[in-house]
Amino acid sequence: MAVQIDVLDPRQHSEPPYWEALRIRAGLRADWSYELLRIAAWCSPVPLLLTVLRDSAEAVGLICASWTGVPAHHGKYVAPRGRPWLGALYVESPGTSAVPGWWFAERLSLTERTELCWDYLHGMRRELGPRCRGVVWRHAAAADLPVLRGKRRGLLRSTSSIAVLPLAWPTPEQWLASLSRSRRNDLRRQRRHVDADPDLSVCVGPGGDLDPGQVARLLRANEAKYADRHAGLPITTSMVTALLGRDDVVTVRYIDHAGRLLGFGAVLDHPTAPVSRHWAGVAVEHGGRRHLYFDMYLRVIEWAMQTGRKEINFGRAKLDIKRDLGCELQSRYSVAVPCW
């Protein structure tokens, strides 16, 4: 297989005509839309590079990587022509750490995928020069490891697991019945509490009518609570605007009758496996409501069952809670492959 490599920097390159069709074919979610990639690239601390691997005219691979290295410019956006003196490509999904940042065509065998990873490593080395010293494949499943490690084997490190809820139950009630009694009773009580609040309206659906500034403020306040663990830059209003304007992003919002957004959740939709991406709620001491976090899980699971999804990916945080909700914890790994 003679592979050709196209490297795109969304800050400088306009959207290729085939991009949207390729994104849908690859089953990639809204965060891979070129509009969102462009915003992510401009509002990132390091350069974001997209690579399309093509076998003659057909795209057989798609990889998104952050070119990270030294010097690190903490708390700053990447300079217009900025690139590290020495660094590595961190391959990760642009919008969420719950899914990997690469796609290979289904028709490829394991050997061909391994070759593709090798071609990517060397292609990027040629493209970026000796400043690029390797590739770190992040959030890889155990099944991906032989493909990613390749001939050089690479360095392997276990990272935080992800929680995936297989929707094996036909109704939310049957799913609730499968949980432990205390968790089930808690969830039902919390739902009653939210439903009984006369000053609260709950809506699940597209978020085009929400004020992006209000949502961005809420999400940032939530990020600030985890500032020690959250090393990235804050979500931008334009990113929120673009997300809310999409049909394949489903929101769960809790709004009081004065119009104040008290809780907000967003799901990156997918025909079979949506990803629950964002959650933020106003603290109770600042006028927020109790139990919205757990209620959000119920609403998302109900929505996913009603729309025939096969599973929901709830990401990496608060794994104990997610296990109590019936999620499977799937191991994830980072693989660093050096390049000399």
């Binding site: 700053k76 500034g213 209003t237 334009s238």
Partner: peptide, 29 residues
């Protein structure tokens, strides 16, 4: 390099000056 509002606006929308009302609306940025 450091202020979200100008980063987004100048990179993604326009380099034109911005109206004070818009600035006021986006104070958090």
């Amino acid at each position: 390099r450091t202020v979200p509002f100008y980063r987004e606006r100048w990179a993604l929308v326009s380099r034109d000056p911005v109206l004070a009302d818009e600035v006021q609306r986006r104070r958090h940025d």
